[in-house]
Nucleic acid binder design. Structure first.
Lengths: 344, 344
DNA sequence: TTCTCTACTGTGAACGCTCACAGAGCAGGG
DNA sequence: CCCTGCTCTGTGAGCGTTCACAGTAGAGAA
C-alpha cells in the first residue's frame, strides 16, 4: 500500500517525518522510540514500530551524526607493513571477530591501512577529525607515531597486544604470552626433551619479550641451564623462521626441540628441518605459538599455543565501547591454551 | 596562534564558517574551493587554502552527505563462509588493494561480513538505505541472494569474478581463467607429461568451469584424450585438495601431473603426495592457480598461474567509481601469467 | 555612455535528525 | 479547590554543509 521495496532504481528513502505522519505522532516521538523508547506510551511505540515496518524506514546516520557529534562507527587500524597482513591469517581472524562483535552493536567498521607516510597522515587527520568514535589498533611496532598522535588527541583507542611507549593511558587486550610460553616449554620437557632451542619474536615488543621470559623461567625452574647458543631472534615472519632454524642447526647440532614464537615462523622451521633430513618430532620436536590456520596447514600438524582470538576480539570491542562511553582505559589479559598435535 | 592540535581532550573542530571568517570570504566560496575550485578567484582560493591550513579544518562528511545524498564511502562485502576468508590469503591481497585504491580517492571502506542470515538482512538494509554509494562484492556463490537484492535496488555493484544468476546488469572484474588454465596445461605438456589430472574448482561457478574448459581444450588440441577418471572436483579449500588427490591416486596410478585449480588445494595435494611417497615434480608435477602466498609457503614451491590481484583491485575500484558516477556496468577480463617454480 | 556578458561572491534554504523546552493531561496530597 | 509532580507529546531550533539564486564588479561591444 505504501511502498514496494523491490522496484528497480533508487528512490528517495522515507524520513522520520514520513514515519511520524504514518504513525500519527510527531517526529519527537518517533525519535524517542528509535533511541531507547523511554517516555513513550506503549500505544505510541506500537504505532511507530508498525509505521517503521510499513515504510521500510532506516535511520539516516549522517543526519543523526551531524547533531549528536558521534559517528557511530569505529576504525580498524593496521599500522603493520602490508606483507605481514597478507601472510598472517591471525589478522583475518581478529578483523572478522571485531567486525562481527561490532555488527551486533550495529556499528560499522572502517578499514584503515596505514602503510605509507602519506597514508598515515591522511588517516590520522580522518580519525582526529571525529569521523570515527574510536579505533581498534593492530600494531606490533614500538613507538607507533599514529597511535601516539591519536592518544594525544584523546581518541578512544584499544590495542591488540600491549603497546609500548604509549604510557598507561591506552587500553589493550592481549593473550598471556609468558604463561603460554611456559606451558609450551613445560610440555617439551614433559615429552623428554632437554636441548630445547627457541626462536623468539621481535624483542622490541612486549609479546616477544614475554615469550622469551617464559621460556627461560621454565628451564631455570626445571634445573636446565639456559644456553644462549640455543636462542635466536626472529620477527614472526616465515622467512625469519627459516633463517633462525638454520642458525640453530649450525650452532647446536644436538638440538632435540625448538620453541618457535609464531606458527608462521614454525612453518619456515619445518621446511628447513625437512631439507636438513631431520624428522619431526622424532629427531626434533617443534612447538609453535598462535594456533593460526597455518598450524594445521603443515605436515606434521603443529603443536602450538592457542591465542583466544575470538575472546580477544570481543574484549577489544567491549573495552573500546566502554571507553567511548566515557570509561577509563583498561588492560585485559586472557589465558592461552596448549594444543597438542603431531609436531611434539 | 589559532589552535594547537596536540592538546589532550577532544575540542570542537573548526567548521567551514570558521574557515570563511579566517579567510575573509563567505561559506559559499570556501565550499567552492573545497569542491574543485571552479569560479573562484586565485586570491580567494589562496586565502582559503591558508585558512584551512591554519585552522586545521577537515570537512564534516556527515553534513556533506546529508545534503548531497552521497556517503562518499563504499562497502567491501564478503558473502563467503568465514573459514575461506581465514584460510585464503587472496582475500587479504584483494581487500588491501581495494582499500588502498579507494584511499587515493579519499573514500573510506566499510567492511561487511555477511555470514549469518541475520547479518545478510542487516547488511542489505544498511546498503539499500544509502549508507554506502556502492559495493565491492566478493562471493563465489551461485545465485547470491544479497547481491541479487542489491542489484534490484539499483546499488552500484562490482563483483570479483564473474557472478552468475545476476543477469548482465552487474559489473565484474576477473582474471582470464580459461587462458590461465590453458597456459598451465600447455606448460605441463611442454615438460613432457601426458597423464595430466585435474582437480577443479566448484563447477557451479564460472571460474571453476572456465579452468576446466581450458584444461580440456589444450589436451584436445594436443591430441591427448581427455580421461574423465583424471578429473575430480573440489571447492578451492585445502581439505578438498587432499580428498581430490587421494581419489586421483586411487583412480589413476600412472598419473604424472596434476593441474590443481587453486594453490590452497595444491597445498593439500602436496601433503597427500608426500604421505604417499610420491616425489614432486619427479614422479608427479603439480601446477596450481592463483599465485597466492601459499604458493611459496610450501615445499617444493609451487608453479602456478598468477592472478593479477593488484590490477584486479584497482580495476574493481575504477569500475565501481565509474558506475557510481552514472556510467553503465562493465566487465573487465585481465590476463594471467605462468609463474614457474619447483613443482613442475 | 549604456548594455551585455562573464567571472566571481554572498545569502538563505534545505538536507534529516536530535535535543531542549514547553505544555497537556492526570494522579495524588495538601 | 489548587498545587506539585509525573508521564507523555509536539515544536522550534540548529548541527555543518551544499545548492540555487541573486547580486556585484569589471571588461568589452555597441
Amino acid at each position: 500500500m505504501t511502498m514496494s521495496s523491490s522496484t528497480g532504481g533508487r528512490r528517495k528513502p522515507p524520513t522520520i517525518h514520513d514515519v511520524a505522519r504514518e504513525a500519527g505522532v510527531s517526529r519527537g516521538t518517533v525519535s524517542r522510540v528509535l533511541n531507547g523508547g523511554h517516555y513513550v506510551s506503549p500505544a505510541a511505540a506500537q504505532a511507530v514500530d508498525d509505521a517503521i515496518r510499513r515504510t521500510g524506514y532506516v535511520v539516516n546516520r549522517h543526519a543523526r551524526s551531524l547533531i549528536t557529534g558521534r559517528s557511530d562507527s569505529v576504525g580498524f587500524l593496521l599500522t603493520e607493513p602490508q606483507e605481514r597482513f597478507f601472510e598472517d591469517p591471525n589478522f583475518n581472524v581478529l578483523l572478522s571477530g571485531c567486525t562481527q562483535a561490532l555488527a551486533s552493536h550495529d556499528i560499522p567498521v572502517l578499514l584503515m591501512l596505514a602503510g605509507t607516510k602519506d597514508e598515515r597522515r591522511r588517516i590520522t587527520r580522518y580519525i582526529t577529525a571525529g569521523h570515527v568514535d574510536g579505533v581498534l589498533l593492530v600494531s606490533s611496532h614500538s613507538g607507533d607515531p599514529v597511535a601516539e598522535e591519536l592518544r594525544a588527541a584523546g581518541v578512544p583507542l584499544v590495542a591488540c597486544g600491549k603497546p609500548i611507549g604509549l604510557g598507561s593511558k591506552v587500553s589493550y587486550v592481549a593473550a598471556d604470552d609468558r604463561d603460554g610460553a611456559r606451558d609450551m616449554v613445560r610440555h617439551l620437557l614433559d615429552v623428554g626433551r632437554r636441548r630445547i632451542g627457541m626462536i623468539t619474536g621481535p624483542l622490541d615488543t612486549p609479546g616477544g619479550v614475554e615469550r622469551l621470559a617464559g621460556y627461560k623461567e621454565v628451564l631455570t625452574e626445571a634445573g636446565v641451564a639456559v644456553d644462549e647458543a640455543l636462542v635466536v631472534s626472529g620477527d614472526y615472519s616465515k622467512a625469519s623462521g627459516e633463517a633462525g632454524a638454520e642458525r640453530l642447526l649450525a650452532q647446536a647440532p644436538d638440538l632435540d626441540a625448538v620453541f618457535v614464537a609464531s606458527d608462521l615462523m614454525a612453518q619456515g622451521v619445518l621446511a628447513v628441518l625437512q631439507r636438513a633430513g631431520k624428522r619431526v618430532p622424532d629427531d626434533i620436536a617443534v612447538g609453535g605459538f598462535d594456533d593460526s590456520p597455518a598450524a594445521t596447514a603443515v605436515t606434521p600438524r603443529l603443536t602450538t599455543i592457542r591465542q583466544p582470538w575470538d575472546r580477544i576480539s570481543t574484549e577489544m570491542v567491549r573495552v573500546l565501547l566502554a571507553q567511548i562511553g566515557g570509561e577509563d582505559p583498561a588492560a585485559v589479559i586472557l589465558p592461552t591454551e596448549l594444543v597438542r598435535r603431531e609436531s611434539t
